[in-house]
Amino acid sequence: MRRYTIEVGGKVHTVDVQETAADRFQVHIGGRALEVRLAAARDVAEAVISPEIAPQDPPQVPAGLRPVAPESLPPLRPAPLPALPPQGDPLEASSEVRAPMPGTVVSVEVAAGDHVEHGQPLLKLDAMKMTNTICAPRAGVVDEVHVAAGASVRTGQPLVTLVED
């Protein structure tokens, strides 16, 4: 599942997107659950979810969801959101470690609740037949591990959520 926390006109919404099949998603927004079928996915240059977005930034709405979102959804504008002041950022205390490239998770070295040091290996990701070790970008506690060994991940997909001690 992927959670987008978006701010529209000063109001913060949480959008949960659960992939149920390759082209079907269950989208939870404001207490409502919607079945969404993805008719087409096109990457629009400025809306690509990529590691270029620092984890502290408010995540952007993927453009791919827009064309198929039912009309009942509140308008989701992918226009650049104003940067939130650091104090007001709900994600400040936690950060996602995201996949730097597409690949397959070989092994997960930590579990939720573990304390990790800066640079400590979190998991091993096999990409292009090369095993890469993904390490903790900072010290903290593992809040959630989003993937298991054997999972294929796309670039930018959250792997582990770290929170401060």
Binding site: P100, M101, P102, G119, A127, M128, K129, M130, N132, T133, C135, P137
Partner: peptide
């Protein structure tokens, strides 16, 4: 893919978060 792996490895030696693999590929 040896050359790309070597580049990725040398990059990671300096910064464990700097994955150059896909560019190098």
């Amino acid at each position: 893919p040896m050359a790309a792996r070597v580049v990725n490895k040398v990059g990671l030696e300096e910064d464990f978060e700097n994955f150059l693999l896909m560019h190098a590929m």
